[in-house]
Computed example of a mutant assay.
Amino acid sequence: MWNKTTTPVIGLGKNFNRLVRWARTFGASVVLLSVASIEASARVAPKPDWSTQDIPSQMGRIVLITGGTSGMGYEDALALARAGAEVIIAARNPERGAEAIARIQQSVPNAKVQFEAVDLANLSSVHGLAQRLNQRLPRLDVLINNAAIMAPPERGASADGFELQLATNYLGHFALTGLLVPLLRQSDDPRVVSLSSIAASRGTLNFADLQAEQKYDPYAAYAQSKLAILQWAFALQRRSDAEKWGIRSIAAHPGVAVTELIARGPGLNSEFGQRWAEGRDAYHSAAQGALPTLYAATAPEAVAGAYYGPTGDEEKRGPLGFAKTPAAATEVADAEQLWTVSERLTGVTYR
C-alpha cells in the first residue's frame, strides 16, 4: 500500500491522469515515466567514444536549432549539415547568422543551411517563426532547443514581462515546440532535444515567485530555468506517448564546455567568470559539449524520455552516457503545475 513517502515508478497508459490527480491530492512524490523512459536504465548506454563520425546519414532530414550561431548550437549545425541534413539556424542576430552559415559552407561546401530570426524572449517573435515554418516546411524532423542565457547580474524582463532567463531558456522553447508539434508529427521519426544543465540539480521551482520579482539571484534563476527544461522534456514524452504523437522528447546537457555563455552572462570579470577562467583547461570544447545533443538527435537507439550527458567527474566532462536525473526533475505534480502555468503564460496549448 502506498503512502506519502512512497515513490512508485509507473508506466503510461490510461492511468496517467488518475495518477497525477492522486499525486496532487495526497502530496506524494511520484516518478511517472513513459515505458521508453523506464527501459532507458535497462538499455545499453551509448558507446563512450561515440563521436560525430558515428552520426548516420541525415539526408532528407530537416533540423531546426535555436541559438545555432555560436557555441554548441553552431557545432550541432556544422555536424548535422556535414551529415546531409537541411539545417535551419534560429537566433536573434542576422549578422551572426550569416557569419555562421558562411563558416559552415566553407567547411561543408554543399551544406543546406539557412537562418531564421527569432527572439525567444518575445512570444510574438516565436509565433512569427512558427508561422513561417508551418507555412513553408513539409515537416520538421528534429527540433533542438539549445539557445540560452546564463546569470545576467541584474534581473531583466522579456518583452512579455517574464524574468529573462526563464523566458529565453524555457518559456520561449515551450511555446515554440508547442507551435511546431503539427510539423513534427509529419515526420517519420520526430525528435525534440532540449538542453538542460548540471545546474538543474541545484534548481527549485519557486511557484510563489517564478519570475524572481521578489528576490533575484542570477544563478538560482538560471538553475530554475534548466530544471524547468528537464521537467518539461519528460512531461512532453509522457504526452507524446499518451496522445500517440510519435515524438521522441530527449533531454541532454553538455557538462561544462568552453563557450560564450559566461562572457555574455555574468561576465568574465565577475567572480564566477574568474573561477571559470582559472579552471577552463579542465573543461571540454564546444564540439565535445555538443555530443550528447547530437547523439539524442541522430542515434537510432537514442531512448525517448532519456537524459544524456558526460559521465566523468561531476558530469562536467567525460564519456557520453545516461546523465543523472535530479530528483526534483521527476516530481510529476510539479511538472504538471509547471505545464499548466506555462500554457497560461505563453498562451500555447499542445495539440
Rank of each mutant, 00 (worst) to 15 (best):
M150R: 14
M150K: 11
M150Y: 15
A151M: 13
P152W: 13
P152D: 09
P153R: 14
E154A: 13
R155I: 03
R155G: 06
G156M: 01
S158K: 12
S158I: 12
A159E: 13
A159K: 11
D160A: 10
E163S: 01
E163K: 01
E163L: 00
L164R: 05
L164T: 10
L164S: 13
Q165W: 04
Q165C: 01
A167G: 04
A167S: 10
T168V: 14
N169F: 08
Y170W: 04
Y170G: 00
Y170P: 00
Y170L: 00
Y170C: 00
Y170A: 02
L171H: 01
G172S: 08
G172Y: 00
G172W: 00
H173I: 10
H173K: 01
H173M: 04
H173L: 07
F174S: 06
A175H: 05
A175G: 06
L176I: 03
L176C: 11
L176M: 08
L176P: 07
T177K: 07
G178I: 03
L180V: 09
V181R: 09
V181M: 08
P182G: 11
P182Y: 15
L183Y: 03
L183P: 08
L183G: 08
L184N: 10
L184Y: 10
L184M: 06
L184D: 07
L184C: 06
R185K: 14
R185Q: 15
R185I: 05
Q186W: 05
S187K: 13
S187A: 14
D188L: 03
D188M: 03
D188N: 04
D188Q: 06
D188V: 05
D189Q: 12
D189N: 15
D189C: 04
P190L: 05
P190E: 04
R191M: 07
V192K: 11
V192A: 09
V193C: 02
V193Q: 02
S194I: 06
L195I: 15
L195V: 14
S196R: 13
S196N: 11
S196Q: 13
S197C: 15
A199K: 09
A199E: 14
A200T: 10
A200H: 13
R202A: 12
G203I: 10
T204F: 05
N206G: 07
N206Y: 14
F207W: 12
A208L: 09
A208E: 15
D209V: 07
D209E: 04
L210W: 01
L210Y: 08
L210R: 08
L210V: 04
Q211C: 02
Q211N: 14
Q211D: 05
A212Q: 11
A212H: 03
E213I: 03
E213M: 03
E213P: 01
Q214H: 08
K215V: 07
K215I: 04
K215T: 11
